[in-house]
Design a protein around this nucleic acid. Structure first.
Lengths: 216, 216
DNA sequence: CTGAAACATGAACCAGTATTCAACTACGGT
DNA sequence: ACCGTAGTTGAATACTGGTTCATGTTTCAG
């Protein structure tokens, strides 16, 4: 495959002993700048037109470089798309995760997390679309994204249960249920329509997660 | 656009006074048979390869007809895809809706509905994928699909609240949250993995919807 | 300064495939 | 039996856009 190492701040890049024959990671600051430009252009292009309508030539144009330069940094259209998916998958986790953890208890963390997610989506509509489309372009990356999140989510739910904060049940199913909620609310109230505040939506959703529909 | 009328049993086909100049609806039983074959082949092809990888030539081949025959019934690749989306959108509603309504009360209906949905997904994986991909191929159809469902859903939640079966809150947000739950559970436990029974998953989800996470 | 490694360029190549169309065959009513 | 309409056929057309590559230019360590 061979893509430049995009890992910013920390996230170990798991290059399992790559023979480094054709490492596409830039070595000079000029290269890094070009890569950055291509990446940003790609987010715009993929976000605006979707994977298949997006054209490498247009990405290059947006980035202000020649087509050939694109291939200096990425092996293919799919390669850069995958890089973007992985990059933004990490961004979502790094944005929402800490917010949930910072809360005093699980239930209030849930609420803060949803609000943070909707806010993130509003600021990153293109990236949101990219992850969704990866289901059809790079299914394994898509699965990994949600499987990873769900796993972490289920684990923290189990912990919360250990502390007596939430009731008992299959935490994996719950994790997927709550993830689905978040994603759809993000689409509806983050991407499609911003007339409601993230907090208002999060309040309703968190209340549903905490107490359900049943009348008191 | 001009596509053949796929509406089975009832569902009014809203052909707003089409000049009928080029109606593609088959007029003979031979034609109906061919159309059916093309439709079935298209579901297979789109389901297996996704919209962009799918080829009209391959659909024709699967259906056992010539490429030209495809264009006897559909104006374009996108047209048949949209027809499939609309068709299956109706199928989902007609399958799950009645199950929910048949339940004695909203909360138990919720559970039956989720189980029915997961069951439906397992029997119709291809169609499930088609609806999801419509977000990128025919966004308006995708929006309509979920907006319609959410609307009906919110309305019935409001009714249930009127009957005192559920608590008060923004029903549209709730509808979207529950839809998202369903979709993700359908993906995870219907498409990706069938090791759990739909009923088991539905039980956990319905319990979450009814009583939330909070320990009793 | 200097040469090798990095990086940049974009025309040309090429594969895939949606759609058209002109010729042909089957059907159904009279 | 006959004719007009419905349906069938698949080679040819047309176009898009990913990828390659041979030829420059820039960077930077020594």
């Amino acid at each position: 495959m061979n893509s430049p190492d995009l890992s910013q701040n920390g996230h170990a890049s798991v290059d399992s002993a790559a023979p480094a024959t054709t490492d596409k990671t830039p070595r000079t600051s000029r290269g890094r700048k070009t890569l950055r430009a291509i990446l940003d252009a790609a987010v715009e292009e993929f976000g605006a037109r979707g994977y298949h309508e997006a054209a490498i030539s247009r990405i290059a144009q947006r980035a202000g470089v020649a087509i050939g330069s694109f291939y200096t940094y990425f092996d293919s259209k799919e390669a850069i798309f995958r890089a973007l998916v992985a990059d933004m998958s990490a961004q979502v986790r790094d944005t929402v995760g800490p917010v949930i953890l910072a809360a005093p208890d699980r239930l209030s963390g849930e609420r803060a997390g949803i609000a943070a997610f909707i806010g993130f989506v509003r600021e990153n509509k293109a990236l949101y679309r990219i992850i969704d489309e990866s289901a059809f372009v790079a299914e394994d990356a898509y699965r990994k994204h949600y499987l990873d999140i769900a796993q972490g989510y289920a684990a923290s739910l189990t912990e919360a249960h250990g502390r007596g904060e939430i009731s008992d049940a299959d935490m994996e199913v719950r994790a997927w249920a709550i993830m689905g909620m978040n994603v759809f609310l993000g689409l509806r109230f983050g991407v499609w329509d911003e007339s409601q505040t993230p907090d208002a939506v999060a309040a309703v959703a968190a209340d549903l997660i905490s107490d359900g529909l049943r009348p008191r």
